[in-house]
Amino acid sequence: MKKIGYYPGCTLKTKAKIFEKTALYTAEKLGYEFIELPNWNCCGAVFSLSSDDLIHHLAPIRNLVRVQDMKEGAFLSEETLVTLCSMCFNTLKRANIRYKNSAEDRSKIKNIMDTESAYQGNVSVLHFLELFKSIEPGSVKLKRKLKGLKVFVYYGCTLLRPKEASLDDAEAPVILERYVETFGAEALSTPFSRLCCGSYQTVNAREKVVELAYKILTSAIESGADAVITACPLCFFNLKDIQNEICAAYPDFKGIPVAYFTELSAYALGMDPGEWDEEPGFIKTALAQTGEKKIKR
């Protein structure tokens, strides 16, 4: 089994435990052992955009140093770090790019970080989806059927933009669609699959987020989707956890199940349904589509 460095980030250990659980299950079934970085720290959630603000790049770089140390200690098969949360992915990948591209920034950052080993800049930051982008639909042995389940893929922002940090074409991505098809469901997308949900504005401008989430979810419903999948715990909150607020603001809104993309694959690969605290909405639809009455164990 290929050993790969894994960065969970704060939300996967608290609000998005099911994201981590289903991802680790999927990875193991597909031949990867994820080794969690020892003593990982917060990545900062957002990439610092000011030209003179180097201090905020230290947190992501520190995590990359740990990957380098693990590779040197032969704990990993390669110098690669995999993330699941799309905000962590963006922040870690862009800090890595900035470090690699600017000799001046590199030297300043090295000078401040005197307790860690010097970062050589050789770690590749990958998103979980990138590990499986070359898998052909039909090549994975599936335990449960998702045939007929229509899934609206929601990319959000930080998996795709800006271009240098994108895991696919920034304007016409297919990586999530391919993932959904690999696990036996039908993928749907519209331009709203790439529209911002309002992100952290949910903290202090909730009404703006409610409006954006309403537009995105309505587009999903109108496209004929049974469920929406996402890769970001913050999008998940904005699209799922505040659906009651969307209903209150827009009485025509009917609601739609939202899940992490890894819930779909873990279900198709046979994860015990008891592992979910609450059965995701897509499972009921999946069973109805295939004419089965209960979940196969």
């Binding site: 959630a45 952290y200 949910t202």
Partner: peptide
Amino acid sequence: EKLPQIALVAALRKM
């Protein structure tokens, strides 16, 4: 309690 950590960290970093 309800908000995910990344929402709070990002909002504090940006605002």
